[in-house]
Every structure is written in C-alpha cells, then in structure tokens.
Nucleic acid binder design. Sequence first.
DNA 1: TTATAAATGTTATATTATTACATAACGTTA
DNA 2: TAACGTTATGTAATAATATAACATTTATAA
Lengths: 132, 132
Amino acid sequence: MQKEHSLSKNQKIIFDLIDKSGEPMKAYSILFNVQKKGIKAPLQVYRALDKLVEIGKIHKIESRNAFIACQNSSCQISKATAFSICESCENVSEISNSKLSKYLSNFSDDSGMKYSKYNLEFFGLCKKCKSK
Amino acid sequence: MQKEHSLSKNQKIIFDLIDKSGEPMKAYSILFNVQKKGIKAPLQVYRALDKLVEIGKIHKIESRNAFIACQNSSCQISKATAFSICESCENVSEISNSKLSKYLSNFSDDSGMKYSKYNLEFFGLCKKCKSK
DNA sequence: TTATAAATGTTATATTATTACATAACGTTA
DNA sequence: TAACGTTATGTAATAATATAACATTTATAA
Ligand SMILES: [Zn+2]
Ligand SMILES: [Zn+2]
Ligand SMILES: [Zn+2]
Ligand SMILES: [Zn+2]
C-alpha cells in the first residue's frame, strides 16, 4: 500500500480536469480550461503537471506532448509505463499487462547499464479505425 | 536488402552532421551548425529531419526532443526502436537486441489493436555515472 | 514557535515546431 | 524534348511547448 498524496489546490484542479477528460490533454488546453478557476499562467500548469507525473497520478505521452490520467490504479510511480496509441483517431490507452511489465522491468543487456525506468509507446490502428 | 535512399542536398548536410556528432542533437543546435552551409531557417531543418526519420536514417528521442543517427544498420524503417538513456550524462544509445525486438514486435493484447510500430525508452545510469 | 520545504503568483523569455506561399529541381513517360 | 507530377527548397511569419527568475504564501514538522 502506498502513501496517499494529498494534492494541493492547483494540482487537484488540474488532475480532476485531466482525469474527467479521459484522454490526453495538452498543457495549453489545460490552461485554457482552468482559467476560470484562477490558474492564469503556463507555469502554474507545468508545475502541477510535473508534480502529478512525479507521483504517478498522470503520465506524459511523450510522442504527443500530452498528459493522461493513470488508468492503472496500481501504478503510483511512473517508472514503468506503456501506452497504445491509435495513429488515426489519436485514442490513447495505458497498457496494463503484467507479462510485459515484468519482461521490461527485468530487461538488461550487456551495456552494463541498470535500467530503473522505461516508457513504451505502441502505435497502430484501433479496432474502430481499422474497420473503416 | 533495402532500397538505398539518395539523400537530397539539405538532407545529406543534416544527416552527416548528426551522424558525425554521435549523440542526440536538437533541431536548433543543428540549425546553428549548418547555417554556414546555407541552411538558414528552422523549416529547412525540420523538413530534412522528417524525411530522415521517415526513411530510418535517424530516430527521434521523444523524451528529449532530439535526433540521433541510427546505430543499427539493419533498421532502415523506424518501426521498432529502443533506446537506453542515462539520466545523469544524457548519453543515449540505440538498443539492438533481437529478443527484445521480437518480443515487442509480436506483442498483442486483448484490445483488438494491431500494433505496427513501437518506441521504447529505457532510463537509468550508465556504467560511468554509476561508478561516480 | 521557528525553521524548512512545498506551493503559488507573476512577468518575461526560451525552445520547439508548423502554416502559408512561392519557386526550383527531379524523375517519368508521351 | 516537352509536359507532367512529385519532391525538395527558400523565406517570412507565427504557433505551440516549456522554463527562468523572483517575490510571496502556505503547509509540515521539529
Ligand atoms: Zn499508470
Ligand atoms: Zn482509432
Ligand atoms: Zn535504428
Ligand atoms: Zn551517464
């Protein structure tokens, strides 16, 4: 069981927005959406995003410069993330596959490097887009 | 055996620079370095980068917004890329591990999605940085 | 309480990437 | 060769993403 982080005011506003949206959101779109709540500057958004990423409540989809709420309740620290991304409709979902995460968490090669973290992004066409 | 792409003038200038550097380069650093060769505008750089990525001569390190020459001669199309990134010295190298690439290329889950491409980034400390 | 760390507010600026439009070079085939 | 479509180039302007610097406030805990 992990320590429950209590979010600060800005962190909560921004997390709630991302979580409710259910899809990746971009920083400036977040900013636009929270201006009525008094968050006026990019930096306020980025600071909250940084913290939320750090504690694993959200993840950054690197290839899209966007942020999505963690869909995997057991993933409290963002050290092992995997996503599937539809290149047509841009739907993103977090992959929760214990075989995959075990395989990658235990991966090592002959470089002498110890990997403490990974991020994997799969691309393709989702069911809907495939059948069009 | 794959078709050899003949690079255009700008593509060649930019590929040669990235290839010689041996490490990830950022777009505006590339721009700065090729201005003496007549490439003056960001768009000229980004267009060449796009093409070089498309044909697999370079890869984008998404978490760093940087571009590195393909270190794996057999990787002509960027559909299956894996990198190790040192979070201390920022050294990046392309992982060439057939088991890993087979595992990931064949990965499928119950989402009904067909994955045609992936990008994996491992993070940690390299040998040098570990021993400091 | 007092110290420390974490979070906030604000302005300005840096960095990364694309739009829009005009022109030139190249490859194919009639 | 001439015409055509495709790819690449040049140039200016601007959009989108992210951080620096500094002042202040709020939360946490010894
Ligand atoms: Zn997660
Ligand atoms: Zn789709
Ligand atoms: Zn490669
Ligand atoms: Zn290192």
